[in-house]
Simulated assay, not measured.
Amino acid sequence: MPRALLRNDVRQYEDLRDEWWRPNGKFVTLHWIAAARAALLPPAPHDRAVLVDLACGAGLMAPHAARLGYRHVGVDLVTPSLEQAREHGVAPIRADVTQVPLADGCADAVTAGEILEHVPDPAAVVAEACRLLRPGGTLVVDTINATARARLVVVTIGERVPGGAPPGIHDPRLFVRPSVIVEAAARHGVRLTVTGFRPSARQMLRWMITRRGTVRMVPSRSTAVLYQAVGTKSET
Results as ranks from 00 to 15, higher is better:
V97F: 07
V126A: 02
A103W: 00
V126T: 05
R131N: 07
T98G: 05
A103Y: 00
E128D: 05
A129K: 08
V119Q: 06
A123L: 00
I93G: 07
E117K: 00
T111C: 03
T98I: 09
G113Q: 13
E114V: 13
A127K: 11
L133P: 02
A107G: 06
L132G: 03
R131E: 06
V125P: 06
V100K: 14
A124H: 01
D108T: 00
D108S: 04
A129S: 14
R94F: 04
E117V: 03
R134C: 13
E128A: 03
E114I: 11
E114L: 09
R134N: 01
P135W: 12
V119K: 10
V110H: 05
L116A: 13
A109W: 03
V126Y: 08
A103N: 04
A112L: 14
A123R: 01
D121T: 07
D121C: 00
A109F: 04
G113N: 14
E117H: 06
I115K: 05
D108P: 02
V97D: 12
E117P: 05
L133R: 06
A103K: 12
D96S: 15
P120Y: 04
C106Y: 04
V110Y: 04
G136Q: 01
V119L: 08
L102V: 09
E114R: 00
V100L: 13
R131Y: 12
R94M: 14
A123V: 02
P122L: 08
V125S: 07
A123N: 01
G113K: 07
L132H: 08
V97P: 12
R131C: 05
A109H: 10
T98C: 14
D108I: 00
V119I: 13
L116R: 10
P101C: 10
V100E: 07
P122C: 07
A127P: 01
G105D: 09
